[in-house]
Design a binder for these strands. Structure first.
Lengths: 122, 122, 122, 122
DNA sequence: GTGGTCTAGACCACC
DNA sequence: GTGGTCTAGACCACA
């Protein structure tokens, strides 16, 4: 997994999203230690301050916590991780419904079209 | 409706997509004349050549046709417009399925989650 | 019928060919008077001298003859016209054979391919 | 083999045709790498953009494919090459029939005339 | 070095 | 005025 950054919205929010994705998908497992700010910043080719801000955001949400001397860790609260996962999913769903409405499909149309698509693929 | 251009893929493909959207949504109706290359280019703040390329692409697909001296027109073949609409929709759906799979939902999970979301909203 | 002039060979030879075509196809009938050099030159957007040269060429071949006071006329010798027709046709044929050989068809292949094409069209 | 460009139709279409000829005649063999855009453009004394356009056209037809960093290659699908060959041949034939009709020979006359020409040459 | 994209500005044919 | 072509020169990502 790599870092993909676009220019259409603040970089730190994109970092937040991508780290969330890594947590949800288990790339960063619950309780695991994550790389240092400096390493992450280097990896993503962003300024350490920007990465710092992203991590603070995640800390505020409770997804990661820092231990002064030994570094940052992913929360062990798997329930919280699942909640984040669901909320991200809902975001995606709403965004998707919007796009489909631009194309002239209302939510119900969208669902039936997806069911058909699924059958075709099988 | 305005022109939104990002930097993560060729401008001319984005122009193609956005014009397709305008055709599908009826902003540009079948048989209707569309603005000149130069006007569209100015409107979207791109070089006329780039807009020209986008329009050529649409012409190759049969969505617009040009009459050398009098301008460009949307096809009157509404069936073709609907086909484009469907194919764009399918693209969106597949893209969406992929994103959801990154979040850990397979296609079936995604569908049931969407149905629940729909119920909640009602 | 209009005058089509390219830049890849002398204009006067092109004029000769096109006037020959007009004679063969009957646009200029045997014995008929043709327009004045000046008019023809104007029509074809070439210098009168160039048109003059073309007509001299045709005169040398005996396809047109001039009567000092009353203008230029197409020969009445239909046999000669037919000979010209045949020679032009042969030129075309040889040129065509050459092109087909560039594509990898020898003369015999070319003929059979043409016969097939003819059948398909019927 | 050199590049012959006339002024009576777009350069890029002529480039397309001539490259097709090179492919068909085996000058560019299936699977072989062809010179870079810049080199071809220099060779043909055209702007790199123009050559690029010609090559894109060929790529769309599937006759060549490009590998972004290592260059462009002729397709290995010899069947497709043969199809192109046949379609070019048919074009030539139709064009030739038209010219002969201008001379007053219908398609059947043309064929018999060609057969006679062939016998004479033998 | 490769292919690819984009801009700027020019010219053409057509009506 | 319209669409279309061409050149010149720049920049990018990739490896």
């Amino acid at each position: 997994m790599t870092w993909e950054l676009k220019t259409d919205r603040p970089i730190y929010t994109q970092l937040v999203d991508q780290i969330k994705l890594r947590i949800i998908s288990g790339i960063y497992a619950p309780g695991e230690k994550i790389p240092s700010v400096r390493d992450l910043a280097f990896e993503a080719s962003v300024n350490p301050n920007t990465m710092q801000r992203a991590l603070s955001e995640l800390e505020r949400d409770g997804l990661v916590f820092s231990q002064r001397t030994s570094g940052r860790f992913i929360t062990e609260d798997e329930k919280m991780i699942n909640e984040i996962k669901d909320s991200l999913a809902k975001e995606q769903i709403l965004e998707f419904f919007e796009k489909m409405e631009k194309l002239g499909y209302n939510k119900k149309d969208t669902l039936t079209l997806m069911e058909n698509t699924l059958k075709e693929m099988a």
